[in-house]
Design a protein around this nucleic acid. Structure first.
Lengths: 194, 194
DNA sequence: CTGGCGTTAGAACGATCACTCTAGTAGAGC
DNA sequence: GCTCTACTAGAGTGATCGTTCTAACGCCAG
């Protein structure tokens, strides 16, 4: 059994991605982690917000690692994007559409409510964007174009989570993935040839 | 001064887009509408969920109308998409990044929590998709391709709200808009020529 | 065994939550 | 005038919120 602190973060991450930040109570988090209120506030004296910040950092790093793994395996940028969306679609299906990315979910809720959480989400998005940008740079794209394309891909992924989950239809995520893959193909072909 | 019922819906819509569904209390809604609890439950006996469903329907119809206006003015599908994102970017800037689309915000929160609200959001997305699909069909795209492209545009818009609001940077929305405009240009050119 | 420390346990706190309920107002139809 | 209906008013409900607090536990050092 993992350490109490880790179980708390994992429990919160799971609940946040299903119910969001405001929709999740501290009792649910401690229950899910088999922990007590005392333990939670021992590890996170800053309370719910501090715990959420840790969830964002940890989950963000996890997804970054996953994306880096995909780019290492893929033979082209377009294929990496294709795998990214297919993986997200499969996850959504396998969890009966309850497990989305906790960061996209929390980001919209806290953007205007808590400045520390807002910047935490922003930092995570920045690491994702940077990694995708580096990938597109290898295809010969300009820094600006690569960054814009990376931002677009991440936005499409976030929006795809919203639509696919709302429709309870992973094929919507796949359709978006195919469009973005085609867009990346076109953009990288232009970048490397021009 | 608008009717009490309308003021309640407007107040709830504004608060939802800033703080989300779970982050907004009934007291905030009635205060913002200059109404009382009695009035709220007179018009919405189903409480917060019934009010939220009405907000989703009303806001969804409003955005649909706005989009139809844009397509009527635009000289091409690509230009319509460009205007769509620019309009969203301007709104974000003018409200100091607090006013996002209430439906995207609420959709993620309630997708796994309340079935009626989930389908309400889904219906709204369906009307948006249908309108955009019709536009792309006029460019000669196949029904399937047009639908996939429409879904992709809406997803990108939703994700762009998340990223731009989190970064407090409307240019992120604009960068995504340019990418999607280029993608639509490529897709419609292919569709009308092939 | 004894102290000290990191951790756990969970009762208790005031605040606030969504919601209910009774009383009252205002205006239309008679 | 009277009555009926639509709406307003807001105190009050129990439940639950995030958080605080005191007490105790387990374990290692001396």
């Amino acid at each position: 059994m993992a350490e109490t602190r880790d179980r708390l973060v994992a429990s919160a991450a799971e609940l946040f991605q299903r119910q969001g930040f405001n929709g999740t109570s501290m009792k649910q988090i401690t229950d899910g982690a088999n922990a007590t209120t005392g333990s939670l506030y021992h590890f996170f004296p800053g309370g719910k917000n501090e715990l959420a910040a840790e969830v964002i950092r940890t989950s963000g790093a996890g997804y970054l690692e996953l994306f880096q793994l995909v780019t290492a395996v893929a033979t082209s940028s377009a294929q990496a994007i294709s795998m990214l969306f297919e993986g997200a679609a499969a996850t959504l299906e396998n969890s009966d559409f309850v497990d989305a990315c906790p960061i996209f979910t929390v980001a919209l809720e806290v953007a205007s409510a808590d400045e520390a959480l807002r910047t935490a989400c922003d930092s995570v998005f920045a690491t994702w964007t940077a990694t995708a940008t580096a990938m597109f740079r290898k295809d010969g794209m300009t820094p600006k174009a690569a960054d814009a394309l990376a931002t677009t891909i991440i936005a499409a992924l976030g929006g795809a989570y919203i639509l696919a989950r709302t429709a309870r239809d992973a094929n919507r995520m796949r359709a978006i993935g195919r469009n973005m893959t085609a867009h990346v193909e076109a953009a990288t072909a232009k970048g490397s040839s021009g």
